[in-house]
Nucleic acid binder design. Structure first.
Lengths: 211, 211
DNA sequence: CCCGACATGTAAGGAGTTACATGATTTG
DNA sequence: CAAATCATGTAACTCCTTACATGTCGGG
């Protein structure tokens, strides 16, 4: 009995929520454990061999045939057993961080562009996420034990973290442009706008409206 | 001329900031691109072969001899050229996310524990980071072009994101315990405390003091 | 007419982890 | 007396990405 890996559990979790094809898994896995199809297909076979999944073959016309995978009782048990173990530490790999760290090699203008571009991307993802959240809130049942609940929580999490990183970006831009809050007192988000209050370098009380 | 990978640039960046040994790199790389020594040592050799690094051999008594690596002009140029290219998208792999997503398999009690444990870890890292930030602010030169600046920015970023995730955890716990803010209006951090304001399920205005 | 969506797979290679190997010194 | 710190390296493995392979349909 060889142990299954994290991606395997991610697959069990997604399929357990709702049966789907390997093709669909690529998208569904994205918010929790991104993977390419070349990694997914062989693993599906392996999970089925272990009796954690089963598939139904669906012949289609005009488009390729497909396999719809569902979780088995055994699969559910495996997931449940894994679920209660302490998760291993997260690994975040982000080239952006290295580039921020490397700001000493480039001139200020380039650092500003780096942060600016990041902010633009975050802005995009904030918009996309708030749309998704609204959609879930409007159309789906959201009891704490529903199958949509976990998904909903994760979108919220991503949204909040993106907002917060945006605020950080703005803080960095202010530092780089020397409009500096020296003693930060209060940072808050109100109606989608980010606000920062504090005492500036020159001693005056400052407020930045961000985002 | 074979391209060097992201870890390679991370190494150049760290060594460029301050010459160091492979052993020290393991710790210094951690905030930007974590790697094990088994990956670092061979890459250092490769980077030196390419003329991007040089090392000075230091014989020691009572402890193993060491190699202190420094960046070369060529290395600095390589880093600078890479620095201005758009960074690739971040990859976050976090088992915790799969477990949150899987909350439908376990009972509520287990979900609460999952979030609780995460919060405790975040609390720890918030404390650790605020200590580090204070230390940098007290002892180091922090001009925007100094070599400490990027490092300082990243600690701030991590601190803010940890704080925000903590607040999210608290929001989830409130949902799970049915003390629910239905319409979130305002979330802010003040003097290290996290505050959430909004309209509760029962229509009353609520304020949660978190952290 | 090209591109993206749908749909499944394999092969090769690069990136990252775990384990093997060695050994003195300090700290609890 | 055990564990952590310092210090460097290799070998074997798993994980992940990129590329190869195939084919239909619909939209711009």
């Amino acid at each position: 009995m060889i142990a299954i890996n994290t991606l395997g559990y991610a697959i069990l979790s997604v399929i357990g929520r709702k049966p789907c094809t390997g093709y669909e898994l690529v998208n569904y896995l994205d918010p929790i454990w991104p993977a390419k199809h070349s990694q997914i297909y062989p693993l599906l076979t392996k999970l089925e061999d272990k009796g954690l999944l089963v598939h139904e073959f669906v012949e289609q016309m005009g488009r390729p045939n497909k396999k719809i995978f569902s979780i088995t009782e055994k699969g559910k048990e495996a997931l449940e057993n894994w679920m209660v173990k302490t998760p291993s530490d997260p690994v975040n790999r982000d080239e952006f961080l290295i580039k921020v760290y490397s700001s000493w090699v480039a001139d200020e203008e380039k650092s500003i562009k780096l942060i600016h571009d990041r902010m633009a991307k975050l802005e995009e993802s904030v918009t996309r996420l708030s749309g998704k959240i609204k959609k879930i809130e409007e159309t789906q049942e959201l009891e704490t034990n529903s199958k949509n609940f976990g998904r909903y929580l994760l979108f919220h999490r991503k949204f909040r973290l993106a907002q917060e990183e945006k605020a950080w970006c703005q803080w960095v831009l202010n530092l780089l442009k020397n409009k500096k809050i020296n003693i930060p007192l209060l940072s808050m988000t109100f109606a989608g706008k980010l606000l920062q209050y504090g005492i500036g370098t020159e001693g005056r009380f400052l407020c930045f409206i961000l985002g």
